[in-house]
Computed example of a mutant assay.
Amino acid sequence: MGSRHPFTRYAAAAALLVLAGCSSGGSDPAPVTGFTQADLAGDWDILQLATNDESGWADVQVRIAASGQVTVLSFLDDQGNTGLPPPGFDLKAIIAQNGTVRLTGADGDPAFHGTMAAARTLVFGTGQEGTPVVRRNLFAWRKRVPGLTYSAADLAGRSFAFHGLYAGAGVRWTWGAASTDAAGVLTVGELHASDGVVMDPGAAGTLSVDGAGVVRLDDGAAMRGVMAPDKNAVFLVHLSGDPGAPEPGFMVLQRTGRTFAQADLAGDWALHLVYSGATAVSSGWNRGACSIDASGTLTFSAFENSTGSTVLPASRRLTLSSDGRLSTSADATYHGQVSWDGDFYVRISGGAMNPSLGFVAR
């Protein structure tokens, strides 16, 4: 399991670790109930960021049958690999009533953990590969809802908050604000990075979307991804940096413009987070279950990290601004954004040596 590529046994097959639903121990952080196998059936787009030592990204499309059997339809990674699983590939994705998803079959793998969000069209997860570990992974996957189509109008004339995490030669988090004009030209009006950079980059390129919700940015840096079915978020993988020192990244654009109240955070949530370091040893993942009360106080009821610790983190109070931004007095590096529908939020934190990006869903 020491190959450069972020997937090991079979390139596209191993990418499907995103669907696995159990960790090596601890509790399954899935507060919403009532999920059924039918929620998994259909076509999905899967995006992965793999951190150091073997950093990279992958963009995979799969089809899940009613039985849970998985078929890989397409695969692409940051190195240009497009290999598909060989005949006889046996992988089944099985969802529990609480929303955790497990991989079974001869090619299943229990090392990954993912949680389906309440709308049943998104899954977020974390995991790791290798013995010893050579990569920590962050995943998001999006369902292709039958009958739903997308158009350029879905990206035009919108304001966004963005959060990103980079690995490889440029370990860092980023957050900021951006907007599109009527032609889809993306302008970044504010950018902050964990290495201390603060800037106003300006025009970044033109965003386009096809009928299936596949998004591209013509910035010359291999930025590609998918639009969420509610059309209010875009998930992207990105390759920046010099050819000899690539910086694979994962970025989320979230539509802004609606009004929030502090009480909108109240409820039960599941966390999946990866922090990126110079090596796999200094990278890691956290996952857990937490609740937030009407005042914004977040309390964990279950937690596990990549070192095997299950000690619950201290409670902290999150402040939700009227435009959906999240902050906490407990950590000056913490910055987040609640999704338009309130089903998940994205958050970054950490310093220049341990930047992190997390999805928190309900």
Rank of each mutant, 00 (worst) to 15 (best):
G2A: 15
S3Q: 09
H5N: 14
T8G: 06
A13T: 05
A14Q: 11
L16I: 06
G21H: 01
C22K: 14
S24C: 08
S24Q: 14
G25Q: 09
D28S: 15
T36S: 12
D39P: 02
D39S: 00
G42C: 00
I46L: 07
L47T: 01
L49Y: 05
L49T: 01
A50Q: 03
A50M: 01
N52F: 00
S55K: 09
G56T: 05
Q61A: 04
V62K: 00
Q69T: 11
T71D: 10
L76N: 10
D78R: 11
D78C: 08
G80K: 06
P87D: 12
G88A: 10
P110G: 14
A111K: 12
G114V: 13
G114P: 05
A118R: 14
L122K: 01
F124N: 02
E129G: 10
E129Y: 08
T131H: 12
N137C: 11
R142S: 14
V145L: 08
P146A: 05
T149P: 03
Y150H: 08
Y150A: 02
Y150L: 14
S151G: 13
S151T: 11
S151V: 01
A152G: 07
A152F: 02
G157D: 13
R158T: 08
F162I: 07
F162L: 15
H163Q: 13
H163K: 13
G164T: 12
G164H: 02
A167L: 12
G170Q: 05
W173G: 10
A177E: 12
T180H: 02
L186V: 03
T187L: 01
G189R: 11
G189H: 04
E190H: 10
G202R: 09
L207Q: 08
D210W: 07
G211H: 14
A212S: 15
D218Q: 06
G220H: 07
G220E: 08
A222D: 15
M223S: 15
D230E: 11
D230Y: 10
K231H: 03
N232M: 13
L236G: 01
L239F: 00
D242Q: 10
P243W: 04
E247S: 15
P248V: 05
M251I: 14
V252L: 05
R255P: 10
T256V: 13
T259Y: 02
F260E: 00
L265Q: 04
G267N: 07
D268Y: 09
D268C: 09
W269D: 00
S276C: 06
V281G: 13
S282G: 06
S283A: 09
W285M: 10
C290Y: 09
C290N: 09
S291A: 15
I292Q: 04
A294S: 11
A294T: 14
G296L: 03
T297V: 12
S301W: 09
S301C: 05
N305L: 03
T307I: 04
V311P: 03
R316Q: 15
D323K: 00
L326Q: 09
S327I: 01
S327E: 06
T328H: 01
T328P: 03
A332M: 07
A332L: 08
H335E: 05
S339Y: 02
S339N: 13
S339P: 01
G342D: 06
V346L: 14
V346P: 04
V346Y: 00
I348Q: 13
I348D: 05
I348H: 03
G358K: 06
V360Q: 07
